[in-house]
């Protein structure tokens, strides 16, 4: 078993990582790069907790052998709140009480970000579809859908800052 060096642009910075064959993007993020905000909920592609953007598209990090995405751009939840400013999606999740245990939150936000990048004014049905691969066991989804819609409505203009 021989490892290989894989180069990925991770949250805007090119990173080279020595990985064992078949290392998943999820393991690269969590075990090699300490980016633990991307959660492991199933390792089967069935929960959506590890959703990240690969070249701008929402994908499941647990299903990607990193050798197959060498040279790609990967964005994780850690890249959203730059300069200590929450991203509008994050702000909307906070204000809309759209988190409970928080385990699905990263994946939900990244799936939503993938949606908004191609469809900045989504309908409710669009939002529902976008997160239909993300499992939440706490909220009943309603608050999450509302938060994504609120973020979409507020993008471009600053959302109300909460105290």
């Amino acid at each position: 078993m021989k490892g290989s060096v894989v180069s990925i642009t991770l949250n805007g910075v090119e990173r080279e990582t020595l990985v064992a064959p078949g290392t998943t993007l999820l393991n690269l993020l969590r075990e090699h790069q300490s980016l633990t905000g991307t959660r492991r909920g199933c390792d089967q592609g069935s929960c959506g907790s590890c959703t990240v953007l690969v070249d701008g598209k929402a994908k499941l990090a647990c299903l990607i052998p990193v050798e197959t995405i060498a040279g790609s751009r990967v964005e994780t939840v850690e890249n959203l709140a730059l300069n200590n400013e929450l991203h509008p999606l994050q702000q909307a999740f906070v204000e809309g009480f759209a988190t409970q245990c928080g385990f699905c939150t990263s994946g939900m936000i990244m799936a939503a970000k993938g949606l908004l990048s191609v469809n900045p004014r989504p309908s409710r049905a669009d939002v529902i579809r976008a997160i239909s691969g993300n499992v939440c066991r706490c909220t009943g989804y309603e608050s999450i859908v509302d938060a994504i819609l609120a973020a979409a409505a507020g993008m471009g203009k600053p959302l109300k800052k909460s105290a």
Binding site: T36, G37, R39, E78, F93, V94, E95, T105
Partner: peptide, 22 residues
């Protein structure tokens, strides 16, 4: 209806679950 104490950690992915220690 105070903001959840853990909400900002959740939305930024910074909340530390047990598996995040290694």
């Amino acid at each position: 209806s105070t903001e959840r104490a853990d909400a900002r950690g959740h939305v930024t992915g910074r909340t530390q679950f047990y598996e995040d220690v290694s």
